[in-house]
Nucleic acid binder design. Structure first.
Lengths: 215, 215
DNA sequence: CTACAAACCGACCAGATGGTCTGTCAAGCG
DNA sequence: CGCTTGACAGACCATCTGGTCGGTTTGTAG
């Protein structure tokens, strides 16, 4: 009947899957109400697990929060930004496309709930150094991806030579989070598009034939 | 001895001053730990007041939070952005100067704790419509000030005519909040300056003779 | 088949927290 | 000078919440 020693993930015992389920439920709760607003009982109710299971996998609430950042939030950044930019032939165009498609990619969630990474950063950075460091690492991942894309774009002559990729990347990431934040507060997808258009305009101004007309 | 019917504000009874003290203490707590993280007991400890006083002036915690937005947060935006931009003769330059001076004006606080308005917006907008509306109004105040400054700059020939003030203002406010958020997560004044430089670059590109480099 | 350990259950606890309620005190008023 | 009312004090409460702990089940090695 059950000859598989390692089923994918049933209701049977599977610690990895259990841990993952806890993390995902916690991520969801944090995304909705923030880390401080997340209730362990709610996580357990959603997963159908109990205190015993949770505290078997995580020593306390804080460790659970850390793990969410280290795994899910990080994965999100890698999926959404690092990989697409790393593979792109025309990095600057890819970046612009990524910003343009953001409303579509992230869906309504990003408007109603905002960016999980930025939410956590704004909430926890001043309160907990452990969070801050992990979130900073995650931001660095993102920043590096953008900076490398810009560097490649510059080397390929697709971007103005006088632009500092590091500084521009910092600003781009910041502006992007700012746009998402604006849209979230307005609870408006239009606002996201409007704000994103401003960023796209900035990005296009980085293009090689945009600053001075000598093409 | 005490002929003054309305002393400025001693430890004697003065409801307005008491209310204000509660608001300021609450603002401080919210700025540090967010609305959900604010503890009424802590507010009372700081002010030296008691539950009785607090619940005499505010029906509940939420109303206190609302009042903080309606008074202190709003005043902050007006002092820091609305008034300086309204009085400026060269609005675009004033805007740039305001962004440049931000590290100095807001001091270290903005780096360690971030922007009170944006903090609250990111935390509460998805959770409470009352907060969201009030914060949205406050953002609108700010946005309008920037948009009007840009319009005046354009009409005075200090800004490119092809820039839409409304959209640009949205992006500017968003980018500014994004920059502050980045600096806050990095806990670095340098980061704020670096990120702000990116924004200043964008603002300068709005100047009339900035788009094409033929001066 | 047994023994053992990992995985998980769920009742229970201590402290924190928003909120209530009765009472006190000062000031204006007739 | 008594009465009323707003301003405030502070003890008390119900509930929530992170965390604990002894017990139970399941897989698996010997």
């Amino acid at each position: 009947m059950c000859p598989q020693p390692k089923s994918t993930a049933r209701s049977e015992r599977n610690p990895d899957s259990t841990r993952r389920r806890i993390l995902e439920a916690a991520f969801e709760q944090i995304h909705h109400r923030g880390y401080q607003g997340m209730r362990l009982d709610e996580v357990l109710a959603v997963t159908g697990l109990t205190k015993g299971a949770l505290y078997h996998h995580f020593p306390n609430k804080r460790a659970l929060g850390y793990a969410v950042v280290d795994t899910l939030v990080r994965e999100m950044v890698e999926t959404l930004w690092v990989r697409p930019l790393a593979d792109a032939e025309a990095p600057l165009d890819a970046l612009i496309r990524q910003v343009r498609d953001l409303p579509g990619l992230a869906g309504e969630r990003v408007v109603t709930l905002g960016c999980p990474l930025n939410n956590l950063a704004q909430e926890m950075s001043p309160l907990d150094e452990g969070f801050r460091r992990r979130l900073d690492e995650t931001f660095t991942l993102w920043h590096r991806a953008v900076a490398q894309a810009l560097t490649r774009a510059r080397d390929a002559g697709q971007m103005r030579a006088d632009v500092d990729p590091e500084q521009a990347a910092t600003f781009i990431v910041a502006a992007l989070e700012g746009c998402i934040g604006m849209a979230k507060n307005a609870q408006s997808l239009e606002r996201l598009a409007q704000c994103g258009a401003g960023l796209v305009g900035y990005l296009q101004s980085l293009g090689s034939q945009a600053s001075d007309g000598r093409d």
